[in-house]
């Protein structure tokens, strides 16, 4: 069991993180190239990034949004995402692993705060999963991946928390295997699935602005292919 744990926390972890990093790099490069190409072909190449950047920043710290139509969802979602960003990077056990593997080390969360945030993340994940399951407007737009990703995050955080508890009813090594498998899987999937919103989110509004910058010849190819155009006017 220890060798499996060692394998999952060692080579598999390194492979997962490398794949994730390279995948993210590829996504960012491709998206930036798309924006550049869109600007080059647009009739008006001045794509303003200011408004897009301001809105993106506003959503990274969505204080205003907490007071709007969905305050409960907003707070829970904020907690969920804060936990996903903070705990994996600043939990003392994780930082120790980094130090052992790379020699790099940085500040860690106090154990009590890390535990509280871990539980909050798992609990908010459960809330989000139930929201997706039982609210018709959300269920109708939810595919398997929507449930799967949320469930994975819940399992990662719950298993991580449980593994450190003295009252854990399961063998610690088995819980850790679940934790590591799900964690590695999430990292591997990130660049290839909708989990990539984590890194593409800051670019989405700029790409939207590029989309509104139309090419002067738009529609010509479509007209040719479909033999129509101008809404059947021709």
């Amino acid at each position: 069991m220890d060798s499996i744990l060692h394998y999952l926390g060692g080579p598999v972890f390194r492979f997962s993180i490398m794949l994730m990093a390279l995948g993210i790099l590829r996504l960012i490069i491709l998206t930036l190239a798309d924006i550049r190409s869109a600007a080059r072909h647009a009739g008006d190449s001045r794509i303003g990034c200011g408004a897009a950047a301001t809105l993106t920043l506003a959503w990274l710290v969505p204080v205003r949004e907490l007071l709007r139509a969905s305050p409960l969802f907003s707070v829970v979602s904020l907690l969920f995402h804060a936990g996903i960003m903070v705990v994996p990077l600043f939990l003392s056990e994780h930082v120790l692993l980094w130090e052992q593997g790379t020699g790099l080390s940085w500040m860690t969360l106090p154990a009590a705060a890390a535990d509280a945030l871990t539980l909050c993340t798992a609990a908010s994940g459960v809330f989000l999963l139930f929201r997706r399951l039982f609210w018709a407007s959300l269920r109708v737009v939810s595919g398997a991946s929507g449930y799967l990703f949320t469930a994975l995050i819940i399992i990662i955080f719950a298993s991580g928390w449980l593994a450190g508890r003295s009252f854990n009813p399961f063998p610690r090594s088995e819980v850790m295997i679940v934790h590591l498998v799900c964690g590695n899987l999430t990292m591997i999937m990130l660049p290839f699935t909708r989990l990539s919103h984590a890194v593409l989110f800051p670019l989405a509004r700029i790409v939207t602005a590029a989309g509104w910058h139309v090419r002067p010849a738009n529609g010509t190819a479509g007209r040719g292919a479909a033999g129509r155009g101008e809404g059947g006017a021709s």
């Binding site: 998206t31 919103h197 593409l200 989405a204 790409v207 939207t208 139309v214 529609g219 479509g222 292919a225």
Partner: peptide, 27 residues
């Protein structure tokens, strides 16, 4: 027609990134 428009316009990157980032939260 969809294919032609994607090839001749700036909409492809938009639809591509939306298809990647949309988590359908229904907010």
């Amino acid at each position: 027609a969809f294919s032609s428009i994607l090839d001749s316009s700036n909409y492809r990157p938009v639809i591509e990134i939306y298809s990647r980032v949309s988590m359908n939260c229904a907010r």
